[in-house]
Simulated assay, not measured.
Amino acid sequence: MTTPTDPPAPPGRPRPGRKLGPIADSVSSTHRAWLEPVRDTYLASGLTLSGLSDRISFAKSKLSELLRGVGLYPRWEVVFLIAAELDMPNWPLYRLWRQAAFEARRSGEWVERSTERTTILTTAHTAAPWDHRAFRDLVEGNYLLYAQVFLDDDQRDTAVADTFDILWLSWNDALTSHDTRRYAWNVLRATVMARTPHRDGRPELSTAAFDTVALRSLTGPADSMDKITEILKLFSAISRLPGRQFDVMVLRRLCGFAPEAVSALVGSSLATVSSDERHATRFLESVLCPPPSTEGKTP
């Protein structure tokens, strides 16, 4: 009895090989920040694991582990070789890799050893594409205001810097997307939310956001406790909104942006922003100012 065999691969084309598995659930957000762009670029390149393995002289099984985020945290030398084959900029990739290395509890000595063969190429600062730099100049201040609603100053700055590094790595995708502003906003949001404390699955707003709203609201010491209670209720209600409405209300109520500015920042039409704000306002009013109960009253 004969056993069936796979048809021969077409001449000149490598056999596809086993499909790359997904990123492991245990991968941290900082590790994922650089791993996802590398994976996306690899998958779009048309290379197989075998082909990439041959080019960088790195075992295919280890390469598969690296691209899925399993096993030991990878040394920069290997990531650098992969990036070179995929024609990815190493400067933003290195900064994201280094940050994730420290969060993976790798020592400074380990990081230095891991980069010693590529020091000159790694530490040589290269400029981002001019349109990326122009976009950053345009939106960075507003991104910082949004991030500060959730994070302290250091985390805010790191989250926004990481956002622009991730965008640099995937800038071609951003430019060819339906709307570059919306693509970039989604990267910012994911980066900020990954660092934001959550309670019951809902993001918590930072002390800075509370202080800002309190300063706008309080008129004197006499009403302080009542206003603080109202602000806490407002924050809790906003955290229950779906993502798009949530962002609109954070930008409108907590950051003080005009509807036109929100539209430009998040890459949604002014009509969409207005609709999201209207639906969100109705929800907040139903939570904060519920209609009086008629229970027990005689009609």
Rank of each mutant, 00 (worst) to 15 (best):
D173G: 06
A222E: 15
A104E: 11
M1D: 11
T219F: 05
G256Q: 04
V27A: 09
A33R: 09
P290V: 05
I82R: 04
S293V: 07
I82L: 08
A134N: 08
D247K: 08
R182S: 11
Q99K: 13
T219Q: 13
T30G: 06
A44S: 13
V70I: 14
R181N: 15
F246P: 00
D226F: 05
D226R: 14
Y183T: 04
R156N: 09
D87A: 13
F102L: 15
A33T: 10
F80V: 00
F150Q: 00
Y94C: 01
Y42F: 15
S57C: 02
V79S: 06
A128K: 09
E285I: 07
S263I: 00
R156A: 13
T118D: 13
T191E: 12
I82V: 15
E295W: 06
L49P: 03
V160K: 02
A174G: 13
F210G: 05
A237Y: 02
E204R: 15
P221F: 10
G17W: 10
D25T: 11
E109D: 14
P7F: 07
S26F: 04
T126I: 10
E230I: 02
S114L: 04
D173A: 12
A264M: 09
E36L: 15
E36Y: 05
K297Q: 14
D211M: 10
A280E: 04
L284Q: 08
F102A: 12
R32P: 00
E103Q: 12
L47G: 01
D211T: 15
T158M: 10
K233T: 08
N186T: 13
P221D: 11
K297M: 12
R202S: 04
W171C: 05
L254R: 03
L218F: 07
G296Y: 09
R282Y: 07
L35G: 08
P221Y: 11
